[in-house]
């Protein structure tokens, strides 16, 4: 089944990427928290749910945004940054969690602060079957590898949850993660 026209194509693409609407404030709240905590390096593999936050970070000359070829590079980057005295954050989609599992041992063994902000797929009204296995296993996999996981499914919970994840990482020296639920990110538009 192919879209008949450009408008329909746009609608389908929006469904596939489950992008949040521009009006939502929580990406800006996350950016403000990164600034408050003094985060200087931002490693990322893009996700539609992080699009606004990524734009904010790219526009900030005090942040070094490092686009990665695979999420596991982000854990390595966090370690290197901390060795040199800089705080970092890793932005990714839940499917990327499968790519970082072994590299988390670097942060655990060295006791490196490694906060991760994960936008969820395969979580709430998913459209793509390939997203479901990893999405369903994201929290269990992270926790099995010693990562402290918090979850936000409502816009009003995002700032506090991300703040807790950043504080836990930088104050207690370990990998931590906030999962931003697909319900928050706008997968509800699938239910038409």
């Amino acid at each position: 089944m192919f879209p008949a026209n450009a408008q329909e194509d746009d609608m389908q693409r929006e469904q596939l990427e489950s992008a949040p609407t521009a009006a939502e404030a929580w990406p800006d709240q996350i950016y403000d928290l990164l600034k408050q905590h003094g985060v200087r390096q931002v490693g990322l593999v893009p996700d539609a749910g992080h699009a606004r936050l990524i734009k904010r970070c790219l526009a900030d000359n005090d942040m070094k945004v490092v686009s990665l070829t695979t999420e596991e590079e982000g854990v390595a980057l966090a370690f290197g940054a901390w060795l040199g005295g800089e705080k970092s954050v890793l932005l990714m989609q839940s499917s990327g969690v499968g790519n970082i599992i072994n590299m988390l041992s670097v942060a655990i063994a060295h006791r490196t602060p490694c906060p991760i902000i994960v936008t969820m797929r395969g979580d709430f009204g998913e459209f793509n079957p390939f997203q479901v296995p990893m999405g369903n296993a994201t929290q269990a996999c992270l926790e099995a590898m010693g990562t402290l996981v918090k979850r936000a499914d409502r816009p009003e919970d995002v700032a506090d949850t991300v703040n807790a994840t950043l504080r836990l990482a930088f104050n207690t020296y370990r990998p931590t993660a906030t999962l931003l639920g697909q319900r928050l990110l706008g997968a509800k538009t699938f239910g038409k």
Binding site: Q41, K64, E73, A76, W82, G85, N102, M103, A109
Partner: peptide
């Protein structure tokens, strides 16, 4: 002692920080 495949990007994070 581990982190196979990560050494170059560890160097990158360190080089950017210092």
């Amino acid at each position: 002692w581990g982190g196979m495949g990560g050494a170059a990007v560890m160097g990158l994070g360190l080089a950017l920080a210092q």
